[in-house]
Computed example of a mutant assay.
Amino acid sequence: MKKFELTDAAMLLLIPLTMIGFSASIHTHNNDISTTKAAQVNKIGETIDTEYSGKSDLNKGSVRPLYFQASRVFSVKYRIVNFKTVLDEDYREEKLYRYVPGAKKNNRTYSWKKINGHTGKRVYVDKKAKAYYRDDDGERESEDFYRIRVSANKTATRYWVNEDAIDD
């Protein structure tokens, strides 16, 4: 009986040693196996891609990085409104935008100094936008933005702000 137990123990020890030796021989003798790099985690806010710009001269082309913001907005619905309101006391926590965030690739932001912003400043609202997006968990969310101007003149410069920037 002890002879069988000793044989079983030797076989159990031999199996892992065989696997290690076989694995080592694959990596040392076979040069056809390609190596892989560890996966890198992308930042959600920014992704880098490359673009090849070819020149007419031979071997003068170059590869340059392209930076772009990943947009989670999949739909924006606009509605015309017409009312006057004031900037909320927490308006500084928000930004002034040229377009609804996520609606355009190159959206410019402005400083509140541009419009001499302060709590209680009167603004004129002429449009409302509801932006639909997916959050990090994949759930659908929406956010409201308003297009404001600081002058009663309808041709004055307009900016988009989050609903939290104005007093409802």
Score class of each variant (00 low, 15 high):
47 T>P: 03
42 N>W: 09
160 W>L: 06
25 S>A: 04
56 S>W: 10
40 Q>V: 10
61 G>D: 14
97 Y>D: 04
14 L>N: 07
104 K>H: 10
168 D>V: 15
105 K>F: 06
73 V>A: 01
60 K>W: 03
48 I>F: 01
158 R>F: 05
151 S>L: 07
110 Y>S: 11
60 K>P: 03
134 R>D: 00
157 T>S: 05
80 I>A: 14
93 E>Y: 14
125 V>H: 03
84 K>C: 04
73 V>Y: 00
89 E>H: 07
36 T>C: 10
157 T>W: 01
126 D>H: 05
132 Y>F: 06
11 M>P: 01
25 S>M: 06
158 R>D: 01
93 E>V: 02
143 E>F: 03
159 Y>I: 01
97 Y>N: 08
17 L>F: 11
37 K>I: 11
125 V>E: 01
19 M>S: 07
120 G>L: 08
133 Y>H: 00
124 Y>S: 00
62 S>A: 08
142 S>F: 03
154 K>W: 12
73 V>K: 00
124 Y>H: 11
63 V>N: 13
64 R>P: 01
47 T>R: 05
68 F>Q: 09
3 K>R: 07
119 T>A: 12
145 F>C: 06
8 D>L: 13
164 D>S: 14
46 E>G: 09
51 E>P: 02
11 M>H: 01
107 N>C: 04
123 V>Q: 15
23 S>R: 04
137 D>K: 15
8 D>P: 00
19 M>H: 09
88 D>L: 06
13 L>E: 12
62 S>D: 06
57 D>Y: 08
31 N>S: 09
66 L>I: 15
15 I>W: 02
51 E>H: 05
98 R>H: 11
15 I>E: 05
162 N>Q: 14
77 K>E: 13
103 A>D: 06
25 S>Y: 11
12 L>T: 04
